[in-house]
Design a protein around this nucleic acid. Structure first.
Length: 223
DNA sequence: AACTTCCTCAACCGCTTGCAG
DNA sequence: TCTGCAAGCGGTTGAGGAAGT
């Protein structure tokens, strides 16, 4: 990834693509001396042939001091889940409650896990379809012999499927309710959780609740 | 060992917001 | 109040590496 690929330059003549260590050094040195902000002038003054946007992004997501690198902790995961249930895709807002983590990082994390969940729900749908097909075949065979008895059995199977599915497809508002009731110490006026308490809550809760429940049972994550 | 598929994450793009003149 | 610019934000893309076949 660090190697220069065929990114080229933008229409305005700015360099695009991955940053080189030299560029990082220039940007870090400039910002530590002059501070951040006024990114377009940072780009020029630091001798970088980059757009202000690109400089800002690089600084915020990679060079800024205090950034945590590496995997998110279970506590952080829990906080993300909880806050996403409250605010949706407000990545920068969520990032404020995770010191050292960037909105981009959280966004990427969510996307990764959301995709996981999406796939599992597709599998679930496929399984349902298979069961229905089998049922229909079975129905054709049995209908002439024992129509009433079979009807009862079919209803029973479908009911079981539906009830187990219903748990997974809770409506968004209800999900929010769940999140609200779970976050015990909640400032309703400012709509901001007391994150000291939340850390505890989420940590203990995610320890108690297994991953399967977390990703597919408690909340339907597709908004 | 070779190939394919999946996952991760850095970076870009376009839209929105905030602010100064 | 209007306009233009810069910063911020969320969505999307694509390269590289890992895992699977």
């Amino acid at each position: 990834m660090a190697t220069m690929m065929a990114w080229g330059v933008s229409e305005q003549g700015w360099r695009k693509g991955p940053w080189t260590p030299e560029e990082d050094k220039l940007l870090s040195e400039y910002v530590s001396l002059h501070g951040d902000g006024r990114w377009s002038s940072v780009a020029r003054s630091a001798g970088l042939n980059r757009s202000g946007k690109s400089c800002r992004l690089r600084w915020v997501n990679y060079l800024r001091p205090g950034l945590k690198r590496g995997q998110l902790t279970p506590q952080e995961e829990g906080i993300i889940i909880e806050l996403h249930a409250l605010w949706g895709n407000k990545w920068s807002t969520i990032a404020k409650y995770l010191p050292g983590r960037t909105d981009n990082e959280i966004k990427n994390y969510w996307r990764t896990h959301f995709k996981k969940k999406e796939k599992s729900s597709i599998k679930h749908e496929q399984r349902k379809q298979q069961i229905k097909q089998l049922e229909e075949q079975h129905l054709e065979q049995q209908e002439q012999q024992q129509p009433i008895e079979h009807d009862m059995m079919t209803r029973s199977v479908l009911f079981h499927e539906e009830t187990s599915t219903d748990q997974k497809t809770t409506e968004p508002q209800e999900r929010q309710q769940t999140a609200f009731t779970h976050t015990t110490n909640y400032d309703q006026h400012q709509c901001l959780p007391h994150h000291h308490v939340m850390h505890q809550d989420v940590a203990s809760w995610s320890d108690t609740v297994g991953d399967d429940v977390l990703w597919s049972g408690l909340w339907n994550l597709d908004d």
